[in-house]
C-alpha cells in the first residue's frame, strides 16, 4: 500500500519535472507603488509605478534573447453610449448611436517596444495585445458583439477615450532597467473613474508568451469629495434641500453684509 503510493508520488514528480523540462521557465514578480489612489479636492491626476523582474527558474537557463513586457491596466467596466451628429435641416443633431457594454473605463497598454515587434500579427490579434485589439462588446440589434477594427464607431470611440487620456498605448511605457528588471509608469488622469483597476503583466521572449502576473489597485474618493458624491447619489432629497438652503443662506448673508440702507 505504502509502496504503491510512493511510486505514484514519484511518477507525479517525474511528470512535473518533465513538463517544465529543459525549456527554461520564468517567474514574473511585480510590485506596485500604491494599491489605493485617493481622490480628494486637489486631485489632478497621478501616476502609479510598477516594478517587476523576470526570473529564470535556474540561473543557467538564461535566454539568449531579451525579454519583452506588456503591461495592461484596465479600469472599472462601464456602459457607454456613443453618438454621431449629422446635419438635419441645416443644424447638427445627434442621430446614429452605438452602445458599448461593459467596456473598460480606463485602458492602458504599456510595453517596452511596439507590440507588433514583440509578437507576430496573429498573436497580437488573438491575445488582444494592442489597444486596438481589445474586445469592445457592443449592442448590435439584439446581439452583443464586437465589430471589425475599422468600424467608424469603434475607431472614434477609442480616439475619444484616448483624447480624454483614459485610453492609451505607449511603446516606451515599460523601461528595462536591466535585462530582467523593469519599471512601468501608469498615468491616471483627473477624470479616471472610481473603482478597481486590474493590472496584467505579460512577459514575452521570441514572440512567445512566457508567463504573466496580475495585480490591482483601487481609485477611491475620500473625505469631503466622497461625502458629497455619496450624498448626491444616495440621499438626493436631503442633498437637494441642503444645497437649496445653502443658496438661500448665501443670498441672505450677502444682503446683510452689503446692506446699504
Amino acid at each position: 500500500m505504502t509502496g504503491r503510493l510512493t511510486i505514484a508520488a514519484a511518477a507525479l514528480f517525474a511528470g512535473f519535472l518533465a513538463g517544465t523540462g529543459p525549456a527554461a521557465a520564468e517567474r514574473l514578480v511585480t510590485s506596485i507603488s500604491r494599491h489605493q489612489v485617493l481622490v480628494n479636492s486637489s486631485f489632478t491626476g497621478t501616476s502609479i509605478v510598477l516594478f517587476g523582474t523576470v526570473e529564470p527558474d535556474s540561473p543557467t537557463a538564461r535566454r539568449a534573447t531579451a525579454y519583452d513586457l506588456i503591461v495592461t491596466v484596465s479600469g472599472p467596466k462601464q456602459i457607454i453610449v456613443e453618438r454621431r451628429k449629422e446635419r438635419v435641416l441645416g443644424i447638427w443633431a445627434n442621430m446614429a448611436s452605438r452602445t458599448f457594454l461593459n467596456v473598460p473605463s480606463y485602458l492602458a497598454v504599456l510595453s517596452n517596444q511596439p507590440v507588433e515587434q514583440i509578437a507576430n500579427a496573429d498573436t497580437v490579434r488573438t491575445q488582444q495585445l494592442g489597444l486596438a485589439d481589445k474586445l469592445l462588446p457592443q449592442q448590435l440589434g439584439n446581439d452583443v458583439a464586437d465589430v471589425v477594427r475599422d468600424d467608424p464607431f469603434r475607431t472614434n470611440f477609442i480616439r475619444l477615450k484616448t483624447r480624454q487620456n483614459l485610453y492609451l498605448q505607449r511603446a516606451n511605457g515599460v523601461t528595462l532597467l536591466t535585462p530582467t528588471v523593469f519599471r512601468a509608469e501608469i498615468s491616471l488622469p483627473a477624470v479616471a473613474p472610481i473603482g478597481n483597476y486590474d493590472v496584467d503583466v505579460k512577459a514575452f521572449a521570441d514572440g512567445v508568451l512566457l508567463t504573466r502576473a496580475n495585480s490591482a489597485f483601487e481609485v477611491v474618493k475620500v473625505g469631503f469629495e466622497q461625502f458629497v458624491a455619496t450624498a448626491a447619489q444616495d440621499y438626493g432629497l436631503v442633498y437637494g434641500l441642503t444645497t437649496a438652503m445653502m443658496a438661500i443662506m448665501t443670498g441672505w448673508f450677502a444682503a446683510v453684509v452689503f446692506r446699504r440702507d
Binding site: K77, Q78, I79, E82, R83, R84, R87, W92, R159
Partner: peptide, 18 residues
Amino acid sequence: QLVVQPEEIYSIRMLGAE
C-alpha cells in the same frame, strides 16, 4: 454653434457602471 459643422461629430457618455 448649431449651424457650423462641429469639430467633433462623435461624442460619448457613460450610461452606467457594470
